[in-house]
Design a binder for these strands. Structure first.
Lengths: 255, 255
DNA sequence: CGACTAGTTGAGGCCAGTCAATGTTGGTGG
DNA sequence: CCACCAACATTGACTGGCCTCAACTAGTCG
């Protein structure tokens, strides 16, 4: 609620150096992520106008940064390929993962309010982003009501997502948090047409721990225990969910 | 990240019963909270149009509910008088406070994405809310760019606020969390023209604990300790901050 | 191959939770 | 106005879940 967001304007250098800008047009019209992304439900005419707006893509290698705290906010980014994490930093340098993002996710939304980013986005693997210049997006939203509404929905869902995470961090035990994490990943992979029971984690134990407010050793121990109990099969970053309903029960959720 | 937001539509009864609807026009034009609230920076003409939209207010007594999880989403609410908390519920009934809100705050934003509320808003004292019908607000936003932008900023700031809270919940120790809580309240009281060093808490120890992911006994002990250390003076819900900079240092510090 | 990063596992400690007893406050009705 | 009660708050003693520290293994890459 406090610290990182109200910082004075950019002290940090802009991060354009590490990214490759592609002047290719990235047609929403033909994008496979269209129905998961901001253009969801738009008609052909609206899609064409949105295409006009998305003139650049950014490509990041694993570990590279899309934006940092303090960078001027100018655009939202739609994740087109690969995956990334967003992290927030405390004043003393402590860092916490605030989200893991995959295809169709829109990131950077925390920058609108302050005019500069309060968080950081780092690629977990080689990845690609459509740049949505925010001024133009607002302009276009004023003429295309469904686009405007989609934007509002994306902003709102980010809030809901954060609420769930806050609930996990504030009132769940370690094993419940990890179960929630796995079930959530599972659902999102399914939505994107991937296997919901077998996937490869893109992040380290430490990053998972950071996201869940746990230490890496705790995460590791829990993976081992879940495996022992027959809930999952885990081998490094490869995970197979053997008993999804048991995992869901762990969080108090009825399937 | 998971549980409460993706529920099926309303099972819960609508909450209109407990609230008093006032058909009074609540003029943004003359509202003292104007510069903290959604109309911030709007010109006279825009203000007048916004006035047209805000046709009703809701008045709640302490403990009454503005909306519940599952209630159909139709409007945002601008807090005009008093204060309230918003809470999120896990499936097993566990409840966690997600935010404390005061004059000028806009609440209900988590409902846009799903079409129904995922959280609950409960009055901490007798309070009053301007009802902002969301469809109409979107419409108006399409003709008044600054209003549209303000809405986006409010949505975005809610995200930033959540990020800070996540950071607290995930990586701070109990004393740091409470210090952060007090400093944050202090800042918000100042912004609203109240004393930033002397105020009365509107919530119980248990509610503070719920917000910070702590138990009420822990909160109580910390208040006592802070007092012993000369950081604050506390008497029930009355708090005086004696050493704000020491409190701020507590959040920056890694022990 | 060595250096490095990531992951696993064990031992022990500490912070915050739990349980319990007691004190305080504020609202209500006699 | 005061007595009463219930809700809220404080404090102590003890427990336990997660953290810390540490040793070791597995996999990767120059």
């Amino acid at each position: 609620m406090i610290i990182p967001s109200r910082k004075p304007p950019p002290a940090t250098p802009q991060t354009a150096a590490v990214v490759s800008i592609l002047a290719l047009k990235s047609h929403c019209t033909s994008c496979t992520m269209r129905e998961l992304c901001l253009p969801v439900g738009l008609d052909r005419d609206a899609l064409r106008q949105l295409d006009e707006l998305v003139t650049t893509r950014v490509r990041l290698k694993k570990g590279e940064t899309l934006y940092r705290p303090g960078d001027a906010f100018s655009a939202l980014y739609a994740l087109r390929l690969g995956s990334c994490k967003t992290t927030v930093l405390a004043e003393d340098g402590r860092e916490q993962v605030a989200g893991y993002h995959m295809l169709g996710d829109v990131i950077g939304m925390d920058g609108i309010g302050a005019g500069y980013h309060g968080s950081q986005a780092v690629a977990l693997e080689d990845s690609e982003y459509c740049v949505l210049p925010f001024d133009e997006l607002e302009n276009l939203g004023r003429s295309i009501a469904p686009l405007q509404h989609n934007l509002h929905q994306f902003l709102s869902r980010e809030i809901s997502r954060n609420h769930s995470l806050m609930l996990q961090l504030g009132s769940m035990r370690a094993e419940e948090r990890l179960a929630a994490f796995l079930v959530n990943l599972s659902q999102r992979y399914r939505e994107r047409g991937y296997s919901s029971i077998e996937f490869v984690l893109r992040m380290t134990r430490e990053e998972i721990g950071s996201y869940l407010g746990l230490k890496l050793e705790t995460v590791s121990r829990l993976f081992s225990r879940f495996q022992q109990e027959g809930l999952i099969q885990v081998q490094g970053r490869s995970v197979i969910l053997l008993d999804v309903s048991a995992l869901k029960q762990l969080l108090g959720q009825r399937c």
